[in-house]
Design a protein around this nucleic acid. Sequence first.
DNA 1: ACAAATGATACTAATATGGTATCATTTATT
DNA 2: AATAAATGATACCATATTAGTATCATTTGT
Lengths: 140, 140
Amino acid sequence: MKLITRHTAYAVGAILFAAKSKQDIISVEEFYKGTRIPKAFLRKILQILSKRNIFSSFKGKQGGFRLRKNSNQISLIDIADIFQEGLKINECFFKKKLCDSEKNCALKKKIDDIERMVVKELESITIASLLNYNKRRRLK
Amino acid sequence: MKLITRHTAYAVGAILFAAKSKQDIISVEEFYKGTRIPKAFLRKILQILSKRNIFSSFKGKQGGFRLRKNSNQISLIDIADIFQEGLKINECFFKKKLCDSEKNCALKKKIDDIERMVVKELESITIASLLNYNKRRRLK
DNA sequence: ACAAATGATACTAATATGGTATCATTTATT
DNA sequence: AATAAATGATACCATATTAGTATCATTTGT
């Protein structure tokens, strides 16, 4: 059971870093220094994120990425959706034999319910809430 | 996001079949006829399930497997635990850089919370509840 | 003795995940 | 205009997990 993959986590890491930074445009090199996520991998992730409008990108010298959304407009589900292809709900494992049909497979029904619950939770976790969480702890 | 794997689902399928059957000891061949789960694969799954005391097994002619527990004593979490090695909670993805330490990584905390929720749900889904679910639908 | 069963185990195949490398293109700076 | 520093696109490789098969050994009822 892996709710989020490394891609997702790294993407979140990069976004958190950008959200905290006062800098406007941040290069992969700078992301790397801040996060220590392997550079080539990070780069691919950032490219994908900018295709999906989480970042804008700027080519050429002084180029890099700029966060395009406010940190409370990005939730974990957005990121997970990008890297975990729709978090697709489990297909039926069984053929006709076991249930009468896929549509009333009890197992699938129950698992789907749980997945929906998880999706709802992921929706509620925004980048802003993650930033906040850390800020609160630091004050203690 | 795959909450349960095929192994788990097939195991559940086999257990459901055994729970419904009036037969005492059921051979792999018979399981296969009832579930259409690939025979060799099913066999391995049943072997594992009997090592884990979900089934008892009987060698030799007229041998096979007998369900060892009542259907309300087996929950999805038991099966998932067997085939998905403890449903291990996500380790931290980041090095020191991003959070102060693994112990106050907001992302990990949130994901762990969700996972605990999922585990609780899986605990609540027993074989009996799956059987019931189908029974109820059939009556409609 | 034999056939029908599981036990143990080794092996293979497919898929998903994680990660690197490289060439093309763009752009600020000199 | 040349150059260096950046991303875009894309192809590739490595590793781990999941799915599934095959085979020989052992047991047991008939």
